[in-house]
């Protein structure tokens, strides 16, 4: 199988795009199509999904070859193993934690948690700087967003005795 892959990046992009096109087409199928003169909500998305699928196929095909590949180009490899999985996970987790915590915990704790979790993503993590960063950001967001811009947000949420 892999011997027909000329450019793994193109193949992966192509597959991803085709998958997304299929997904959008499947979603659009449940929508009323209407006719060209009075297009329903599903008409344009369906056209676009078809177009997207076509483009994805082109990308996929350009990455394939009939001749077995001898040497691989370094720039065309995806290099999954070298992806920064830990930072990616931690930064995403930080954002999600903020979203989950903002209502029940309030701005202070969720901001502190989000910043602290992000600092863990760096290889040069140091506890003191991490705590300092979290504290600075909590203070800063309080000053700018609650005091300055008057966002209707408590520093401490209902779970922590706030309102």
């Amino acid at each position: 199988m892999t011997r027909f892959v000329k450019n793994p990046k193109e193949v992966a992009s192509g597959l991803l795009i085709v998958f997304l096109a299929a997904f959008f087409a499947w979603q659009a199928m449940g929508l009323p199509m209407g006719r060209a003169i009075r297009m329903g909500p599903g008409y344009f998305p369906m056209i676009l999904a078809g177009l997207l699928g076509l483009l994805g196929l082109i990308v996929l095909l350009t990455g394939l070859t009939l001749h077995p590949v001898k040497e691989e180009n370094e720039a065309q490899k995806i290099g999954f193993r070298r992806w920064p999985w830990v930072p990616l996970g931690l930064v995403t987790l930080a954002v999600v934690v903020f979203g989950l915590g903002i209502r029940p915990l309030g701005l202070g704790p969720s901001m502190g948690l989000a910043v602290f979790l992000s600092t863990l993503a760096s290889r040069r993590f140091k506890l003191t700087t991490a705590l300092a960063s979290s504290f600075i950001m909590v203070a800063f967001s309080w000053a700018v967003f609650i005091k300055g811009l008057g966002l209707p947000l408590p520093m401490l949420g209902p779970w922590l005795g706030g309102y």
């Binding site: 930080a94 910043v115 993503a121 760096s122 040069r124």
Partner: peptide
């Protein structure tokens, strides 16, 4: 950058 980016994450969130 390792000092900077957590602050950016926090700022983006809020």
């Amino acid at each position: 950058y390792h000092i900077l980016f957590p602050l950016i994450v926090g700022f983006c969130c809020i």
